[in-house]
Each structure stands twice: as structure tokens, then as C-alpha cells.
């Protein structure tokens, strides 16, 4: 890993490709069970709450709050220390891992529960990653 200078990118699977198609077009896509109403992440073609395969995909608002994080000082491929590794709570409920961008990578600038909004950065033609920045 140490000889790698590019960020390690996801390899979409048939069950997740809709998520990565979404990020390319500026949408953060979640899934919802059409039977029990559960909104969930990460993607899968069935409801983790009730087991129904009757699920649909929708675009999330992109609004979130900062649940917890670390500020890593460990060099990682494509990530220059210090960088935040964060878990955010989406307005719709699910949590996801991301990086907080657009602010200092310090404890003072990164306060728990701060409002955030999604921002997309293309990594190549196929993969666009969702990051979060302080809400305007």
C-alpha cells in the first residue's frame, strides 16, 4: 500500500452500481423498503429490516450531521495527513463513512453534530466519491 499514491477506489458490484451511477450525476442514493418503510445503507437488493425484495432507490437530501471522527496522521494512498475519517448521520437516518472537506482538519473545526452537506469529487470516469463539507 505504501507504494500507492492514488486513493484506493471502490469496485462496484451489480448490487451497488446504482449508488456509484448516482454519485457521478450528483445524487447520493439511498434505498427504501416499499413494504416496511425502512431506509437503509449500504446498498443491497433487499430490506435488512424485514427481508423484502420490494425496495426502491431515491436521492437523499445530502444533509447530514457529524457523528464521530478521527484525524488521521497516517499516510494512506491518495490521502495526505492530517485528514479526517468521519462517520456522518444522514438526514434520512443511515450513517456512512466519509471525509470532511472544506475546513481545517482540526478538533476545533470539526465539532460533533455540526451540520454538513454532501459534495462530490470525481476520481476517474467511473468513480465519484461523496464527501461532506460544513453546511453553507
Amino acid at each position: 500500500m505504501t507504494d500507492q499514491t492514488e486513493r484506493v477506489l471502490p469496485r462496484p458490484t451489480p448490487e451497488t452500481v446504482h449508488f456509484w451511477e448516482g454519485t457521478r450525476t450528483g445524487e447520493l442514493r439511498l434505498q427504501k423498503c416499499d413494504d416496511c418503510g425502512k431506509i437503509y445503507f449500504p446498498p443491497r437488493p433487499f430490506c435488512p429490516e424485514c427481508g423484502s425484495r420490494n425496495v426502491s432507490t431515491f436521492a437523499a437530501s445530502g444533509r447530514a450531521t457529524l457523528y464521530s471522527y478521527v484525524i488521521s496522521h497516517i499516510p494512506a494512498p491518495g490521502l495526505g495527513p492530517p485528514y479526517s475519517v468521519a462517520v456522518v448521520t444522514l438526514e434520512e437516518g443511515p450513517r456512512l463513512m466519509t471525509n470532511i472537506v472544506g475546513c481545517d482538519q482540526t478538533p476545533e473545526a470539526l465539532t460533533l453534530d455540526m451540520p454538513l452537506e454532501v459534495t462530490f469529487e470525481a476520481q476517474n470516469d467511473e468513480i465519484t466519491l461523496p464527501f461532506f463539507k460544513p453546511a453553507a
Binding site: 484506493v8 477506489l9 462496484p12 475519517v85
Partner: peptide, 14 residues
């Protein structure tokens, strides 16, 4: 690998 590793979530310390 898809939803954590790209953000630096690839090692126990993070």
C-alpha cells in the same frame, strides 16, 4: 472496500 476504505478507513487506527 467500497464504502470505508476509500476514505482512509482501511487500518485499525482509523
Amino acid at each position: 472496500g467500497q464504502f470505508e476504505v476509500p476514505y482512509g478507513g482501511s487500518l485499525p487506527p482509523t
